[in-house]
């Protein structure tokens, strides 16, 4: 029975929701049950999963990044322009972005600023930079990114391999490594982390840096899939990434997060959109139905959590 720890029960609801939704998709559209079908279903989930992990890292230290969508859009613009035509400059810009995140993480802590407002301001900055870089949709994806994203490994589609890989790496960093324990500690009890001799400032800076790295990867993957970029390409990612973390069993405060859950949450959100288009719901109600699915999944979590609360604790 020790296998059923609280953390694993936490994963049960997101995993079940994903399975049910996947079954529903297969039932409505049996042709999706193939290599190509699965790849198409989950292709766009890869950048969303990366952005969700990035958001999760910020949420681990009790902050929230409202600039995620504009940042990923900006990275996509850089990838489709500089990284393609002048890789050295492109890499320098992206490294600079990670540096900006480090500074943000430190300033927010040192000046005791609300992360919501600072990242709100940053969303204008990234949005402005993206518009300056690509006033009209355009650019070309670098060939090597394109090659990775459209590659067809045997047996299992690329999208699935990538998702599993993202979940595994994030799980190792956040749950298994010493660094992960420290940043979750910062979210849970900042003072105890300080007393234990760790620098909260450094931990937060590192969490922001890592988040930026994941967000940069999200932008690059997105361009690999879409082949070109646009300043508004990923604006939805801000809300999608927050919803993904929560769907996956994460919480806004307390450093309680689940990387595997977050990836599952991102997959669920992507799948929900595909499911609705398969159902041929009127386009007017597409967004509304997504909202409804979100509510249903979270209601399900409540029911199961009650059961968990009654059985254990």
């Amino acid at each position: 029975m020790t296998w059923f720890t609280a953390d694993r029960l936490r994963l049960l609801v997101p995993a079940l929701s994903l399975a049910v939704l996947l079954a529903a998709v297969f039932w409505v559209q049996p042709r999706a049950m193939s290599y190509t079908g699965l790849n198409l279903l989950f292709n766009l989930a890869v950048p969303i999963a990366l952005a969700t992990i990035a958001q999760m890292l910020i949420m681990t230290v009790n902050d929230l990044d409202l600039s995620m969508g504009t940042f990923v859009s900006f990275v996509a613009c850089v990838t489709a322009t500089f990284l393609q035509s002048n890789p050295v400059v492109g890499v320098l810009i992206l490294v600079g972005c990670v540096g900006v995140y480090v500074v943000l993480g430190m300033v927010i802590y040192l000046r005791n600023l609300p992360s919501i407002v600072v990242t709100l301001g940053m969303s204008f900055v990234w949005g402005g930079l993206a518009v300056l870089l690509l006033p009209a949709p355009g650019g070309v994806a670098p060939d090597w990114i394109r090659a990775v994203m459209v590659s067809k490994p045997p047996l299992v589609p690329m999208a699935i391999i990538a998702s599993v890989l993202i979940a595994a790496v994030a799980h190792w960093i956040v749950i298994r490594s010493a660094f992960g324990v420290v940043i979750r500690g910062v979210g849970g009890n900042e003072r105890s982390v300080t007393r234990a001799g760790w620098s909260v400032l450094r931990a937060r800076a590192a969490a922001y840096a890592l988040a930026a790295v994941f967000a940069v990867l999200a932008g690059m993957c997105l361009v690999g899939l879409t082949t070109s970029a646009d300043a508004n390409i990923a604006l939805r990612y801000t809300l999608l990434s927050i919803a993904g973390v929560i769907l996956g069993g994460g919480e806004f405060v307390g450093g309680r997060v689940s990387p595997i859950g977050a990836v599952i949450g991102a997959l669920t959100l992507t799948l929900a959109a595909s499911f609705l288009s398969f159902l041929k719901i009127s386009p007017d109600w597409q967004i509304g139905a997504q909202g409804a699915i979100l509510i249903i999944v979270l209601a399900l979590r409540l029911v199961l959590n009650r059961r968990e609360g009654g059985a254990g604790k």
Binding site: G121, M122, F124, V125, G128, A130, L132
Partner: peptide, 14 residues
């Protein structure tokens, strides 16, 4: 330009 406007708005807010 629109880009500069957004950029400065954000910077000023921060």
């Amino acid at each position: 330009a629109a880009g500069i406007r957004l950029l400065l708005t954000g910077t000023i807010i921060i």
